[in-house]
């Protein structure tokens, strides 16, 4: 099946998902991100790579953090950024997703950064741009439903590589609500593609999707079993609404059974790192002593996230990088 995010030369045209993305493209993004981390430490935190380009942050679902990091990344590359919270504007007036896109295309957009509550929405946009001969406009998925959050997955890989250097000797555990998590799906795809020999998912049966093992992971329900000897612990956010719908009884019970405490973390390797995509629910999925502890790399994740998003945007639309137009 044709992978709609690659152009006919096999280069990255859009970033929609990590699932099916070739390993060398993932590595190229991480390599491209590396020098961008230094930009943040300069006095003038700007590069001219996207000068004159218009990037639309098209957020159909509320988000402050992700939108802000995309905005910062784009501005550091000298792009013009327009933020649209569509959840509160057009669609509320009944405009369809593709009508919104068409209108923004008419404003000479070069790139859409899209977040949407429905899985696959960025694919629909990319397919629409292709069908209407406007596929010079790039689409970056900033999170679609439960499906994918590729830049989060990539920044997580950047973080792991930063601390662990090599992927091919790691055991990584992903803990929590995998069922509803686009982050977890992107992490699993990235880790398996990069050659991590053992990826574990840990959680109650209500929060692990059907046949998740077919994605190449080992399933654990007992967090103590699952954390034994791991190099990386990736925590997932637990949404409060999961208490509805009979998925979980209470946050208290969840914390007691699956919350990451210092005592449970001690079962992992002594140099294991702890990650979290944010925003954290302290005392639900993670204990404060762990979140603020020496093994946590949660704030570096945020910093690396900007560099990784700069890398993605510059590779898609920039004058430099591996993907010239």
């Amino acid at each position: 099946m044709h992978n709609p995010q690659l152009n006919k030369h096999g280069e990255l045209q859009h970033l929609l998902t990590i699932d099916g993305l070739p390993r060398d493209i993932i590595t190229a993004i991480l390599d491209t991100a590396a020098p961008f981390t230094e930009v943040a430490e300069r006095e003038v935190k700007k590069l001219p790579l996207l000068r004159g380009k218009s990037i639309f942050n098209l957020f159909f679902e509320n988000s402050t953090r992700t939108r802000t990091t995309f905005e910062i990344a784009a501005k550091r590359l000298s792009a013009d950024v327009v933020n649209l919270n569509v959840s509160t504007s057009s669609t509320a007036k009944g405009e369809s997703l593709l009508d919104t896109v068409d209108n923004l295309c008419a404003m000479q957009a070069d790139m859409f950064v899209v977040r949407h509550a429905a899985s696959g929405a960025p694919f629909l946009i990319a397919q629409h741009l292709l069908a209407t001969g406007r596929d010079h406009i790039h689409v970056v998925n900033a999170g679609d439903g439960r499906h994918a959050h590729p830049t989060q997955g990539l920044l997580d890989m950047y973080t792991i590589r930063h601390y662990k250097r090599d992927f091919t000797n790691l055991t990584v555990a992903i803990v929590g609500d995998v069922l509803h998590s686009r982050v977890a799906r992107s992490q699993i795809s990235a880790l398996t593609t990069l050659g991590v020999p053992e990826v574990r998912v840990i959680g109650p049966k209500t929060l692990l999707p059907t046949e998740v093992e077919r994605m190449g992971v080992r399933v654990f329900h007992d967090i103590r079993e699952g954390l034994k000897g791991v190099d990386v612990v990736m925590m997932l956010r637990l949404q409060n609404e999961r208490m509805n719908g009979a998925l979980l009884p209470t946050p208290q019970e969840y914390y007691k059974v699956w919350g990451l405490t210092a005592e449970k973390l001690a079962l992992a390797k002594p140099d294991a790192i702890v990650m979290h995509p944010g925003p954290m629910n302290r005392g639900v999925e993670i204990d404060s002593s762990v979140a603020d502890g020496t093994q946590a790399v949660i704030l570096p994740q945020v910093t690396f996230g900007i560099a990784v998003r700069m890398a993605v945007m510059s590779m898609l639309a920039g004058q430099q990088g591996s993907n010239k137009q």
Partner: peptide
């Protein structure tokens, strides 16, 4: 509700 829905993050019908 199977592998495809799991991969695509689509709510499943068992």
């Amino acid at each position: 509700d199977g592998e495809v829905a799991t991969r695509l993050g689509l709510p499943g019908i068992p």
